[in-house]
Amino acid sequence: MSKLLSNKLAAASIIFAASVLSACSDNNNNSNAQARDPVTPVAPPEPVTLEYEVSVSNLTAGQPVSPVAVFVHDSTQDKVFNIGSAASPALEILAEGGDNSMLLTDYESIAKASGDSPIGPGSSATLTLQVPVEVSAGLAFTLVTMLVNTNDAFSAVNGVDIASIEPGQSISWSTPSYDSGTEANLELAGTIPGPADGGEGFNAVRDDVNDQVTMHGGVVTSADGLATSVLGEQHRWDNPVLRVTINRVR
């Protein structure tokens, strides 16, 4: 609360100083200007920025996840996806091929970042987000990443309110796996982009049973009766697949 108050006071004093300066400037040609009280020069204000640290742990046995896309955005805007609705092209491209570039371009946000590499099973990564706003009111957080040894599985934190996190506080989520509904889960050689196959990533054809995002049912694998699967038993998982923590640094 004291932080909020001091931010507001700082903002108020900046506005006040600016109006004094502009009055002064209006009077530049006034010979009486020199008689006015001297105005203390005001340095340009430091941009007010919130800072969040995001850490992601991959909880699976054999599913590397693609470089994460993370966003801090307005909590009232559309989420990246909704259960029961068709995936956007940007989400399809991420969920089928691990390519987060279109989502990072398309999705409206106040701050965003990409992980610089995939996160392997048992590994973690940390990103920092500078959010150029004065207060956290109205902010939401989104993170999306593909389970790369699958046809179109992804995990996400989907537009969750982070307004109440004060500096030094954090929130954690255990995230499940979703299916983008854009590619049949046939697990065939040549259809999975991760190291288990090295096959195709994004393909614009939508051939899943329903063209909609749902929870994922997991992979079957050749070890469990799907003889044509390129996946092995180590590629199976259960929910949750990620542990995500967002910590407000300031």
Binding site: A184, E187, V209, G225, T228, D238, N239
Partner: peptide, 28 residues
């Protein structure tokens, strides 16, 4: 969970393993 199989006209199960399996939660 169900096992299912990939044989639509035989096999041990009439459930499709690549479609009908789930991981919890199943409902929100």
């Amino acid at each position: 969970n169900v096992l299912g199989d990939s044989d639509l006209v035989g096999g041990s199960s009439d459930i499709d393993s690549t479609v009908h399996r789930w991981l919890n939660p199943v409902v929100r």
